[in-house]
Simulated assay, not measured.
Amino acid sequence: MPAPSSARKKSNAPRREYRPAAERRVEIIAAAQAEFIRANFAGARTREIAEAAGVNQATLFKHFPTKEVLFEEAVMRPLIEAMQGMHGRVEVYEAAGTPDELSELARQSTINHIEDMERILPLLTTALFSDMEAGRQLFQQRLEPLIRQRGEVLRPLAKSGLDPEFLGLASFGLMFAVALQRCFTGRTDDLSTTAIQFNRLYTSGFARGKSSSPDNED
């Protein structure tokens, strides 16, 4: 009996499902995000990323020539875009016609910001702590300017004497802390109450009274 031809052998081999290049790119990025979050930059393996995305390494490197480029596209770019999107615009608050409308706009805006922070938290920690020197550069060159910009957004709403840069940092830190708690405790409760607490803290502070404040002592 004659041996099957190579052409027949090839035709019987399972075919890789065709997917458009743009779709493959999205799948590679999603797989890379999961792997970078799991193993950090140094421990991530492109072979495992390719397998998770359903492609071979040649295809992965066709889209992303190096692991560094893949990290930039999968982690850094969405992180920075999300941080930029978290900056509320003063015009939104100025559009409110009544105190109740302002309160509702502020509540929903805060909920959106916390949800954004919760979503990007794994990418943020991966980008900052995969490599300490790279994380330092990321914070100084890319994140800190965004935090300062957030402070400038809050400047027109702030009481006299408050440093806008500190306000931006405090706002970022509070949302980071809430996102961290929800991530590691599995909390999924409605954020409305948290947002109201945030905005109450922003507008009136937390101190019970002023008479005992060191700033008021002679």
Rank of each mutant, 00 (worst) to 15 (best):
A44T: 12
E217I: 14
L123P: 02
L124I: 03
L169W: 05
M86E: 11
G161F: 02
A82L: 09
P65K: 07
K9M: 14
E101W: 04
L201C: 11
A179M: 09
E23D: 14
G43K: 07
L154V: 05
Q137S: 13
I28W: 02
S130H: 02
P4G: 13
E217R: 15
T98M: 04
E101D: 10
T185F: 08
K67M: 09
F206K: 12
L146D: 01
R47K: 12
L60T: 06
A13P: 08
N216G: 15
T193G: 06
V69D: 13
M86W: 00
A30T: 14
R38T: 09
A7K: 11
N199C: 12
L128T: 03
F198T: 02
A53S: 07
L146F: 01
A106K: 01
Q33G: 12
S130V: 04
Q108W: 02
L157M: 15
N216I: 14
E115M: 04
A74W: 00
P78L: 10
A30R: 15
L201W: 12
G97T: 08
V75R: 05
A195C: 05
K62F: 11
T125G: 01
L123R: 02
I37Y: 06
A50L: 08
D190A: 09
T126N: 04
F198S: 04
R142E: 09
E217Q: 15
P156H: 02
S160P: 00
D116N: 10
R47D: 13
S211P: 01
E27L: 15
R136C: 06
I147A: 05
K67Y: 06
V90A: 14
N12H: 13
F206R: 12
I49F: 02
E81I: 07
S204P: 00
K9P: 03
R25N: 08
F129Q: 06
P99S: 09
N199P: 05
A31D: 10
P214F: 11
G186I: 10
L191P: 03
A127Y: 04
D100Q: 14
R25T: 13
I147E: 02
A52E: 07
F61K: 09
A44G: 03
E118A: 11
A74S: 11
I120T: 09
T110V: 04
D190M: 09
M175W: 01
G173A: 15
A158R: 01
E133F: 01
L162M: 12
I147N: 00
A22L: 14
R208S: 07
P122M: 03
E144Q: 06
D218P: 14
G97R: 12
M76L: 15
A207T: 14
A95W: 01
A31M: 08
K159W: 11
L169E: 10
G88M: 08
A31W: 04
E94T: 07
E48Q: 15
H63W: 03
R150I: 01
L191Q: 06
V92A: 07
A127L: 07
C183F: 07
L174H: 05
